[in-house]
């Protein structure tokens, strides 16, 4: 189930979740970066937990709830994160941003009532690389979004 909608898909047995999301289902917000779980551009949420979709086999995910950046229409938390990114000017080329927004969304979901400090946030963003190196504003925007929640 992707963003609350069930999608019957016929794919190759070892296709990654990223391949199926982009090429079969048209969720182009999820980006292809390194393809080996290093850069975080392909981050999605699986049952609320952040994951590299390039490192998961799609056919093993059939009974999972998958959220991509396209779920922002129905998710006010993602909208708040996006607003903070705009306010802080935390976007340069923008390629890594869907992955980073989903990682922050995952952190908010996992943390529940726990306070998210800058140290926790930075630790969580370890798996997301920004080639433009705009980390200062990304951390600032993400932290404001986490505090708001």
């Amino acid at each position: 189930m992707v963003n609350g909608v069930s999608h019957p898909v016929v794919c190759k047995p070892f296709d990654t979740l990223l391949t199926v999301l982009r090429e079969d289902l048209g969720y182009f917000g999820t980006k292809f970066g390194c393809g080996i779980g290093y850069c975080g551009a392909c981050t999605v949420l699986i049952d609320g937990k952040s994951a590299h979709s390039c490192c998961l086999i799609a056919t093993t995910m059939s009974d999972r709830k998958i959220s991509t950046i396209e779920s922002c229409d129905d998710d006010p938390v993602i909208q708040k994160i996006q607003d903070q990114f705009l306010k802080e000017g935390a976007i340069q080329c923008g390629y890594c941003i869907p992955g980073i927004v989903m990682t922050v969304r995952g952190l908010i979901e996992e943390s529940g009532q726990r306070v998210i400090t800058e140290e926790i946030l930075r630790g969580h963003l370890d798996g997301n690389i920004c080639r433009c190196s705009g980390y200062a504003s990304i951390v600032r925007a993400s932290l404001k979004a986490c505090v708001d929640e």
């Binding site: 779980g37 981050t43 699986i46 937990k49 590299h52 490192c55 998961l56 370890d126 798996g127």
Partner: peptide
């Protein structure tokens, strides 16, 4: 171990 994304799975 790696990053939270990897640790989750």
């Amino acid at each position: 171990v790696a990053t939270p994304h990897v640790r989750n799975f």
